[in-house]
Design a protein around this nucleic acid. Structure first.
Ligand SMILES: [Mn+2]
Ligand SMILES: [Mn+2]
Ligand SMILES: [Zn+2]
Ligand SMILES: [Zn+2]
Lengths: 150, 150
DNA sequence: CTCCTTACTGAAAAGGGTTTTCACTTTCAG
DNA sequence: CTGAAAGTGAAAACCCTTTTCAGTAAGGAG
């Protein structure tokens, strides 16, 4: 499932759910942001397109989108309540420590690492969560590092 | 900084902080658990050793331990508020999906993956967060998978 | 040992994000 | 149309976390 109006719509329909005006506003708000957003930030952004939207609906929509796999949760310092569209079926996230921009990448050959971890711990590894931090093209070339706080 | 009474004590002293009876109870509770624990779980466990302990002190102690690098935060489904002792300076965590047991591993050659991600995204990668899921030795051999909910 | 400063503590209150409730509206199949 | 089910926003309830505050423990100086 990737983050795309028609795909999301289909995934919703398959569960007997509907793509309402409010849900579309939430979807658009998430798609438009270069950074991950908290529920409140999504709410603020989506209200520009649908002013009568309620915060409750944002929470409900985020939950639905998460269930159908259209969202990726970004792991931050001590909290995981900010979201980004899931572009690919299996992808991971890079967060820019300069500007907060979030980009997805799909290259992930974990073979070597999971084998080593299995050997070291005795676990049979079945899944992985990986998130990278770095500097985006824009921030990496500047000498000053604009530093953002989340 | 690794999770060890004398090391923690030294790290605290270096900041003019003290290793009180309450903090020791919290420390012991965290060290003893095979799984990651929420602040409330730490509180309950630590009170067996120090019944007059307050929840507030648990939060304050977790914060201090986190600052000196004695804790690892475990990333769960939608929240990151459960803790595990940090055994090594740089280590990662494997969580058993059967019983919840958490084990640390240190093998992590990310070179290949970060290079691929850099190429794909244009970011200069500076750090990584990795957490594996799997079945521990005890759960992996059983046919039934006891399933725990967090 | 006594005095004094600073760290530390728990209870209670405040805070703030999330979920639940509820009356009402929208959508859609028959 | 009509009935059933999904969806909605405001308000209330919830629950986890932080702050406040008055008091307690600890450690250095003398
Ligand atoms: Mn992967
Ligand atoms: Mn590593
Ligand atoms: Zn997380
Ligand atoms: Zn950037």
């Amino acid at each position: 499932m990737s983050f795309d109006a028609s795909e999301v719509s289909a995934a919703l329909a398959a569960r007997g759910l509907r793509l309402t005006r409010q849900r579309r506003a939430v979807l658009d708000a998430i798609a438009a942001a270069p950074c991950s957003q908290s529920p409140l930030q999504v709410y603020d952004a989506a209200r520009e397109q649908c002013p009568e939207l309620g915060l409750t609906t944002v929470y409900r929509t985020l939950e639905v989108l998460d269930e159908i796999g259209a969202l990726r949760r970004v792991h931050g310092d001590g909290h995981c309540e900010s979201f980004v569209p899931a572009g690919a079926e299996h992808g991971h996230t890079v967060v820019c420590s300069g500007c907060g921009r979030v980009t997805e990448f799909t290259a992930c050959d974990m073979r070597g690492i999971t084998d080593a971890a299995a050997l070291e711990t005795g676990y049979r590894i079945t899944d992985h969560f990986l998130q990278l931090t770095g500097l985006c093209a824009g921030c990496g070339t500047r000498d000053d590092q604009p530093r953002r706080d989340r």
